[in-house]
Design a protein around this nucleic acid. Structure first.
Length: 126
DNA sequence: GTTGTGACATCGC
DNA sequence: CGCGATGCCACAA
């Protein structure tokens, strides 16, 4: 059963997965960043979208295909969200070269994608 | 129709 | 940097 879905869940999920597939190994991205790269559904206030799109992204990840590196999607704190498989996600990221703090957090200024140094990809919303 | 909740973000202290 | 409080949309009971 799917959780909350955007007005166009199929298209939304597809775009989410597409973005996640573009995340290079050894890098991580956040729900918020993904949400910013997604188009704003017509008739929806940007504010409202930005407020809840991240959760829709999470909903998309819940049904993500096997070819999507879901482990590279984390929350804005740089931490792995509480959910079954978090332990495995941690291990997978470490194997990719992502370093965790003692608290289990990732330094997004280093491993965050896109990197602020100019590895920018596509323009974003707003 | 009302209430609660979700793989979160952002602002303030 | 960390913690607490607030907000938003859609859906199930």
């Amino acid at each position: 059963m799917r959780f909350t879905s955007p007005p166009d869940p199929i298209n939304f999920n597809q775009q989410v997965w597409d973005i996640v597939r573009r995340v290079p190994p050894g890098r991580v991205t956040t729900y918020g960043e993904i949400a910013r790269r997604l188009p704003l559904p017509e008739g929806m206030d940007p504010k409202a979208y930005l407020a809840f799109a991240p959760r829709w992204v999470g909903g998309a990840m819940a049904a993500c295909p096997a070819d999507v590196p879901w482990q590279r999607v984390i929350n804005s704190k740089g931490e792995i969200s509480a959910r079954p498989g978090a332990r495995m996600q941690h291990q997978l990221l470490e194997e990719e070269g992502v370093q965790f703090n003692e608290r289990g957090r990732i330094d997004l200024t280093i491993f965050g994608w896109p990197d602020s140094a100019g590895e920018q990809e596509q323009p974003h919303l707003l």
